[in-house]
Structure formats: structure tokens, C-alpha cells
Design a protein around this nucleic acid. Structure first.
Lengths: 340, 340
DNA sequence: CTGTTAGCGCTTTCAC
DNA sequence: GTGAAAGCGCTAACAG
């Protein structure tokens, strides 16, 4: 531990000439309840302060059966989208007197399972989890072992769990519809080849918008290779253009930014040669010569709500399953300006 | 705790018909050391697996006097610079079997002190700390209580602590010199009004470069109001231009990005009207119409080294103070192209 | 080779 | 009003 020289309850008790129980009562504000003598209470408080007593959280947690810590597993904490969520989650949990243990899964089910184990071995009181592809078993395990948790950003329709995510279908629809309204017809959806609800939803929204506007014959979904995002994005943009695509919907901000590098390099004219809509935000969207239209997720609301749901599960011993979808907001900018 | 139904060492021992010590030995790979019977060992392992036994990390930590957890306090975990560092730190500590507790200080000394307390109450084995202005007391407290820690990004010259930071003077010098070499003379340094080593170092490097090139008469240092970065940046760029400044050195990426919003809005011509050099990186630097030259910090190296130093302190009980400076690298791009 | 036991620091019941 | 004592789950002397 950080310091071996730390002073314990016993030390305070000895110095005050009382029992450890008294000290515990006083220092936990239960002097009323246990009718501790006023003077004794004062003395204990004074001595505790003098000795610079700091309770040992580990011992407390062990004894109380609650670590006052939650775990958060995201794909990559350095990704701006997750970093923003992390910050909001941190603030929300801190307000409740909890600490947050963050871990990254790299979209790898095995690594995610390992991170879950690591968090559980720290006896976290609950977990906020961005589940990755193929991690149903791990999620099922959490259900079986009755660990309070909430899925974030994605969920598994076949598993009855609490989750909080964007209404992805609606968002995918709005992104696509904006391009359609601007006069684009041959619109390509650029996503990951992931069998995960957020991706499926966004693609479904895209298809729906295309179909509703009699553009199904132009439906074109392309998948970025997650192992090699940069090159894969470049190739997809090139191929989409070659096949006559007039506009692209990017399913995530990482995809968008990587495609933008290629678009910028190649001098492709936005929006006249290619209309664009992205998801989330990135300063690249603002500084690209034609600012990028996008679907904004209400990150703070999402983080707060996910935390609320988690604590509901913690406090109710998972009695209620809450499945919440938030609404994205379309931000219109130059990259999806009306096609000439 | 997550689950009340968890199985303990005692349960395994009972099921295997042996004592808890045997189980502990076996499950901690000490069967050799304690000459545990092979068959018994096998049986214990099998039963532990059958019962899905997971050791309680809290109890282990309490007993062992080490939580196998470190704390990391940065200014803001959602800031890309710190998010990147966080990710590298997470990876490095994970390799050592440690978990990482992140917290944000918001550059506020009081909040930082509170975060330190929170981390210590979790009995972290050590702390990586990005200290904020006026937090000398808290750092001194860590020294006094013999908590292993290492400062990151900034340090206090008057305190004898381990730290890892950029060679800021050299970086500030290089950034400025690049502009001087490109023919700019009236160069303005835009930083925060913070009495912190990184800011002081970068400004000192700027001054040094100006002086070495007989440009001291043009020395011009302006400070962004950290409480209102966006507006303050806009005002500073405007005033600098009005006063005849030909180039700007931005002391952080947040400052740079905020100034770039104004520069873009106003249609200021980069680099001909104004040469620019920033710190760190941001996708805005890449997508601004004139890509921004910058000083890159070796983030991965820095994170790894900070973790190494911290563990040296943990393992040596703070016997050695290591103060390490890394070198930034100047990346030349259009924003600091030779002035016509 | 294996079991007993004494705590790590804390909370809380129960007795006085 | 207060203290003794049990015990959260684990490790590691120490006995045998």
C-alpha cells in the first residue's frame, strides 16, 4: 500500500482512550443513532484530525460488501467519442461518491472478457459496458452472476439486459434523408463489418431511407476493414466514386476522418463531386474545407442516463431492465449542401 | 458487491476437504514452495474451476498491503492529449498486472487535492499526477506521507520529486526558430497565464530563440484566459494582428484549435498573413487549409517512462528520484512555410 | 505435506 | 453510553 505508516481506527481509539466501535460510530456520523456522548465525540474527531486519520477504503469495502467503485469498459479510451463519454461518466459517478475504473477492449471479445474479470476481481459494484462483437457469452455471464451492468452504445437484441444507446435506425435514416433531400441519389453507406446493433441500426436506417424514396436500386453498403482502417477507407472512397456514388454516409467518426484524409489528398470536390454526412463530431469536421454535416449524439445525456440505469440496477439488485434509446440530432453543413 | 453469491476460498476448501491454506497455496502457484501433494493440488484446481471460484481482490489487497492499482490524475481525461496518454498508461500498467484509476482535476488545485484523497482512500500503490497550478502543498503532502508518485507534463522545480516531462524550453525554442528561419520576425507566443513549468519552459524557449536572433524587441507574450478559452483566443489573435504580429506560436493544442476557429472565420491567410506553429497534434491541424506545423511529444514513450519511474518508486519505497525530460519533434508543414 | 491460527482495518451486534 | 468480539476473504507463519 502507499504508506505503511498509516494510522488506523485502532490508533485513534487508543489515543482517545475509547473503543474502536465508538470511533467508528463518531467518524461515520452515527453518534446520534448510538447516543455517543457529545464530549467523547468531539474528542474523537479532534484526535482523528490530529493524527491525520484516513479510513482504509479496502477494509471498509470488504466489510461493507460494496467497493463504491464501478467499472467502465469501452473500445478505446483514447477515441474522442469514448473519452468524452468517460469524462461525463466520471463526473456523474463522482457525484455519487463512486470512483470509476476504466478499461479498453479494443473491440476484441477475448480482451473484453478479460477486462470484465479484472474489474470483477476489484469487486466493482457494477459495470458500464460497450460490448464488442461476439461478446454475448460474457454478457450472459454477467446476467448469470447477477452483476449489475448496463450496455452502452450497442446491445444484443436477444439478451434481456439494460442498455442505453442511440436510436441508430432513426439516425441512419436522418443522415441519409438529408442527402436525398439535397438531391443525391446514389448514396453509399460506409460502415464496419460488425454484427453489432449500432452498425446494424445505422445501416437499416440508411436502407429504409433509400427504400422510402425509391432509391433501393442505388443501395450500396461498404465495409471498412477494422484491422486497417486508413487504407481500407481510402480504397472504399475510391471504389465508391468509380462505381458512380454521389454521396457517402460515414457510420462513425473514425471512418469519417480516415476517409477525409483520402478525400483531401485526392482533391475530391465536396459536396459537388461527393456529398458527405458523418456521425458524432471531430475537429476535422469543422476544419475540412467543406464542413461535414453530422449526426450528433447527446453524449452528456447518454452518460448520465447510463449511470442512472446502472445505479438503479445496483440499488434494486437488478430488479428492473431498462432499455433506453436517445435521439441523435442532424447538424447540416456544407458537405451535404444541395447537389447542383 | 456485485454478487453476494460468490464462492470463497473457504467454500473451495470445504468442497475439496482440505484447509484454506492449501487452497491458497495451490491457487497462488506456491504448491512447489509448500510441497503440496500433486493429487491434492489437481483436485483443488479442479474444484475451484467447477465452483467458478474468483478470488476477492479486496481481501487480497487488504491482506497483502498492495492493491495492485495505481491512480492517474490528469487535467481532463477527455482532452485528446491526456486521453492518448491515458491509453498508453493503461496498457503499460495492465502488462504489470495493475489496474488504473483515472481522475480529472480540471486544473483546479482543490479538486486535485480531493482526487488525491479519493485515490489514496482506494489504497492505490502509487500515483501519476499532472499537477495543476498552486498544488505544491498537495505534492508536498505526497512526499511527506511517502506515497510513490511521479509528476507528468509539469513539475515544481523547488520540490524534489520524480517527474517526466517534455524538454519544454527546447520545444519552445524549436517552434519559434522554425518561424524565424522561415523569415518571420514579429512572432507572438500564445500561452496560458499559468505558473507551471511546461508553460514557463515553452515561453522561455520562445524568448531564447527571439533573443538569439536579435528579435527581442519583437518579443510578445499573450495569455489566454483559461476560463473562457474560445473568446479569449479570438481576442488575442485579433489583437496580435492589429499590433503587427506576423506569426504565432501556440503553447497547447487546445489554444491552437480555438485560435484556428477564429482564423478560419475571419479568413485570415495562413501562412502569408500569419505564420503558425502549434504543440501536440489534432486532426484540425491536418485539415486546416494550411496544415499546421507542430511540436510532437512522444506520447507512448512518455507514458511508458512515467509508468516505469512510478514502479521504480513503488518497488524501491521512493529511494530514488528520477527526473526525465523527453525531446519534442518539430513537424514542418504549410503553416510555417517561408514568408514571402 | 497439511491444518490451525492470527490478523489486514473496518463495522455492527450484543452484552454490560 | 460504551466495549468486546465476530467476521468480511485472504495469506502466511507456525505447528505438527
Amino acid at each position: 500500500m502507499a504508506k505503511k505508516n498509516s494510522v488506523s481506527l485502532k490508533d485513534v481509539a487508543a489515543a482517545a482512550g475509547v473503543s474502536t466501535s465508538l470511533v467508528s460510530f463518531v467518524l461515520n456520523g452515527k453518534q446520534q443513532q448510538y447516543r455517543v456522548n457529545k464530549d467523547v465525540a468531539e474528542k474523537v474527531k479532534r484526535i482523528a484530525k490530529e493524527l491525520n486519520y484516513k479510513p482504509n477504503g479496502l477494509a471498509k469495502s470488504l466489510r461493507n460488501g460494496s467497493s463504491k467503485t464501478i467499472g467502465v469498459i469501452v473500445s478505446d479510451i483514447s477515441n474522442q467519442f469514448f473519452a468524452d463519454l468517460a469524462r461525463y461518466i466520471e463526473s456523474a459517478t463522482e457525484e455519487k461518491g463512486y470512483m470509476t475504473l476504466f478499461a479498453s477492449s479494443d473491440e476484441n471479445a477475448e480482451k473484453m472478457a478479460k477486462q470484465v474479470e479484472r474489474l470483477l476481481s476489484k469487486e466493482v459494484d457494477g459495470i458500464i459496458l460497450v460490448p464488442c462483437e461476439g461478446s454475448e457469452d460474457t454478457v450472459q455471464y454477467l446476467i448469470n452472476t447477477n452483476v449489475p451492468f448496463v450496455l452502452l452504445d450497442r446491445y444484443f437484441p436477444e439478451l434481456k439486459t439494460s442498455y442505453l444507446c442511440l436510436n441508430n435506425t432513426s439516425a441512419g435514416h436522418d443522415a441519409t434523408k438529408a442527402l436525398i433531400d439535397a438531391g443525391y441519389k446514389r448514396i453509399t453507406f460506409v460502415g464496419y463489418d460488425l454484427n453489432l446493433s449500432h452498425m446494424i441500426g445505422r445501416a437499416a436506417g440508411y436502407k429504409e431511407a433509400m427504400a422510402d424514396n425509391n432509391l433501393s436500386q442505388y443501395e450500396d453498403i461498404r465495409c471498412v476493414d477494422a484491422k486497417n482502417v486508413k487504407d481500407s477507407c481510402a480504397m472504399i472512397v475510391r471504389e465508391a466514386l468509380e462505381s458512380g456514388s454521389e454521396a457517402l454516409v460515414f457510420a462513425t467518426n473514425t471512418i469519417a476522418v480516415n476517409c477525409l484524409y483520402y478525400i483531401k489528398d485526392q482533391g475530391i470536390k465536396i459536396p459537388h463531386q461527393l456529398g458527405l454526412v458523418g456521425f458524432d463530431s471531430d475537429s476535422a469536421f469543422d476544419f475540412f474545407y467543406a464542413p461535414i454535416s453530422c449526426i450528433r449524439q447527446p453524449l452528456e445525456v447518454m452518460a448520465n442516463k447510463a449511470v442512472d440505469i446502472l445505479f438503479d440496477n445496483i440499488n434494486s439488485n437488478n430488479a428492473i431492465v431498462q432499455q433506453v434509446e436517445t435521439q441523435g440530432q442532424f447538424v447540416s453543413r456544407a458537405s451535404s449542401a444541395p447537389k447542383k
